[in-house]
Design a protein around this nucleic acid. Structure first.
Lengths: 224, 224, 224, 224
DNA sequence: GATGAATGAGATTTCATTCAT
DNA sequence: TATGAATGAAATCTCATTCAT
């Protein structure tokens, strides 16, 4: 029953002789408007989903005239990109490991998983949104893939180190394993926090930790 | 726009609350047309994605007048549902395990993973499509979730049995573990066959197998 | 058809349950456009009838893009409603009787009938249109009925007063009589000014007046 | 919100080189089918109204294939015409007056009104339908007008006769009066039996009779 | 910078009518 | 005669984007 007209992705010609390019705001007022639009976009996207969100919903939520949107963004994809940028900054926990001073592998795994899941849970609606958009717009998919790869590469490095020290199953392909285990965690996060799969937080963390440890065949820990 | 057309503003509401219901074809010719439409839908969906597929593209691909679509389906979602039904029937490998007579757990895991991945690879475009639609339309998401749950329940049963026989890590939560490991495999399938992550088939299978075995802490196999 | 779009099959329903509500214009320009659309609607409706009038005919007549229609109205019914509202305001002759200072019943009847018929004649095309729409859309029928009832109640009050003063046939049911006589006049107006029944205006008024007087059994007037 | 596409009245070219003309049925089977279609048409028209009735609704109600409709009728208007013809035959009360042998004017008026109202009440849905169609299709309007005129001419004759005999107000224009009073009755019938105006049958008849008598200024009856 | 009205391309959907079986 | 699938013209309605004020 969806009316669903609209040119759909990329049917419209680029038209590069068009009007003004969206600018970075120069005045303080501009700064405020731009921020209001991003906040409103987040609100509307989370509420309606990416597809059903209309530019005018966003401007309405931002208490701004519809035309003002184009002062700062070219289209929906563009605000979304800005939103992603902001949120990623918020969610960044860089060098968690080194920072916390944890050296025990088991504790490291627990800290990483726990951290990730906690953060995912807190931003569940947003994560759902990113997931949705990744399946709609290839440029965001690429982004997500790249992030996943970086993550996996880091984990692969760790696995390789453990293998070298004889602390992990040497028959595992480090990169594939890293991909698989990271993917497993993020998939479970999606299942539980977005789809509502009923698994208690603690049991989730514990089980995922254990699977990581077992999969790598870590030596039994002292406290086990 | 969910027109959701109230009982009708004024005009006495007719008995039919909408247009004629699409019926199952009664003649051989109708059967042929319906099938042509589903085949065309598959083609168009795989080519353009769910969102950009237009009804008229489908009818054009089926060499049928646009109106004929509505003889058999109510809308895009409806053909898609029909397509899913057909494909699921095609892809059904029921009781593969028991049927093959495999009893060794390691071999069972290998057979299951290998089978799943091979099938996924073969139908990659379609799987990508299903994944996309699940992120767009909640009713399809529910379908996918349910399928995943059924799968996980089956695997959980197997894990529990192994634990009871002392062949698997007894500290693992069977259902959560099943979910996690199944999810891991399907996520990797998506990464490799849809997103094009470059991992050779054999290495993929082997690594996933090994992760399963390790995660469950299976006793070393005889041939290892 | 009242699309009456159910909550939406699957996709999470957005907050807006349909498109944007048409708003009252906020700028002078908007005011002008809205008025142009109503004027154009009147023109097109009178020319083509309600059923054959297309939205695009209206926007074309208003020299406006088709989409602009939906800035102010939801659909054909909606403009029609606006048109009715405007015309009713134009045609309102409130308290005509008291205002004119006429006290003689006969003169009052004559003034009322004459006034009504003159006005009907002047707006004949519009009246025909209203009549047509009342037979197509129940909500407009209800409107017309209500108006008729109000009218009849007023006349019934007058009849009752005359009966109380012994100046009218006491055996008549005031309300039924009022309904019947009012209906008679408006029906004749329709016959003559819309259908083109060939009766000279003066003879029409005189005869209807006389029927009213006779029906009520008014005492003969002095000038008769 | 009505989808409302369709060519609308008379937009399509006549296309006189088209397919077969609808024929009168030659076989007994054909006779049955045609009758079934008319009966079904009545049912559907009464249920959904003329505008919302679809050809396929009629064929469905008649348990006949959609194509069969065109064996007997050219379009919706055509079945409707056939329906009218049949119903008029059913409703014909010819020469009521002479038949009943009533000579007293008052009794004649009562018999005529009573008869008309009773019949109207019995066929209310159909009368509503005819009324609706008259406002939609000019050819049916003409029909109704002609019927009204014939009726009025007959009544006018009677009025003239009464005037000549000194039994009715000589200042009344007979034809206009006849039109007005007949119209009044049929309008009231519509109000009460179609629109549901709550007036008891007997009071309705009595009041209308009295208005007729008064309007004509009949001499007081013997039994009054 | 902000406003908000105007634009218009384009997909969906209906159902009367035809015609091959 | 009957069947019922196929046809296809046409109108509605949406909303991203522009631009005059």
């Amino acid at each position: 029953m969806k009316p669903a007209p609209h040119p759909g992705k990329g049917r419209r010609a680029p038209a590069h002789d068009g009007p003004r390019e969206p600018l970075a705001p120069r005045s303080r007022r501009g700064e405020r408007t731009r921020n209001a639009l991003i906040a409103a976009a987040r609100e509307v996207f989370e509420r309606d989903g990416y597809l059903d969100a209309r530019i005018t919903d966003i401007t309405a939520a931002a208490h701004v005239a519809s035309g003002s949107f184009y002062t700062y963004f070219t289209d929906k994809e563009d605000v979304f990109r800005a939103l992603v940028a902001i949120v990623q900054e918020e969610m960044l926990h860089p060098h968690l490991r080194e920072r916390t001073g944890i050296t025990d592998t088991r504790q490291l795994i627990d800290a990483a998983n726990r951290d990730y899941l906690r953060s995912y849970k807190k931003n569940a609606r947003l994560m759902a949104l990113f997931e949705q958009v990744a399946h709609i717009d290839d440029s965001f998919l690429a982004l997500r893939v790249e992030r996943g790869n970086a993550f996996a590469r880091r984990n692969a490095k760790m696995i390789r180190a453990l293998q070298d020290r004889g602390e992990a199953d040497p028959t595992l392909d480090p990169l594939v394993t890293a991909h698989a285990l990271s993917g497993m965690v993020s998939r479970m996060a999606y299942s539980v926090f977005v789809l509502g799969q009923r698994i208690p937080f603690e049991r989730l963390v514990t089980t995922l930790n254990r699977i990581w440890e077992n999969a790598l065949q870590l030596k039994p820990s002292a406290d086990a």
